[in-house]
């Protein structure tokens, strides 16, 4: 059985924090076989971090194009897996595979690398005039 949870919020930077906390509390409800506390905590932190990065990206990109808009974060909740997708109305953006190299003391550009590292699956697609980032992880 899978249940859908949707969170719509204004594209303001403070709401990256809200979305990530909601993601973490949902991840906490996913039941894994191993009851181990540390594995559950890592699973929750993975979603808290991934959603924080994704929403922060959406909001900071929106500011560049000053397109005030609402974001929709949709969670698909399944017994052993959680899938989250972030939808915004920004113009398309390129996800360059390369992570910033460390010696140049980079200050940003880490977001997508972090998401790809901690989520099992990460896809980006365009739907009409909206970007949709989808991430999923199973416990």
């Amino acid at each position: 059985m899978s249940s859908i949870i949707t969170l719509t919020l204004p594209g303001e930077i403070m709401f990256a924090r809200l979305a990530s906390q909601t993601a973490s509390s949902l991840a906490d409800l996913v039941i894994g076989e191993n009851r181990e506390e540390s594995a559950k905590r890592k699973f929750c932190h993975a979603f808290e971090l991934a959603v924080s990065e994704a929403v922060t990206n959406s909001v900071t990109h929106a500011e560049e194009f000053d397109a005030p808009q609402m974001l929709t974060v949709t969670f698909e909740f399944e017994p052993r897996q959680l899938t989250v997708s972030v939808r915004d109305a920004n113009p398309p953006f390129s996800i360059d595979k390369s992570a910033p190299d460390i010696e140049s003391y980079p200050v940003h550009g880490f977001g997508l690398k972090i998401i790809r590292e901690i989520m099992d699956q990460f896809t980006y697609r365009r739907d009409g005039d909206a970007n949709i980032i989808t991430m999923s992880k199973s416990l």
């Binding site: 249940s3 859908i4 949870i5 949707t6 969170l7 719509t8 709401f15 809200l18 906490d28 409800l29």
Partner: peptide, 15 residues
């Protein structure tokens, strides 16, 4: 305006 839609199940009271 922020909206959160949840299935009507006890499990989600925490969220």
């Amino acid at each position: 305006n922020i909206t959160l839609t949840l299935p009507a199940e006890r499990l989600f009271a925490r969220v």
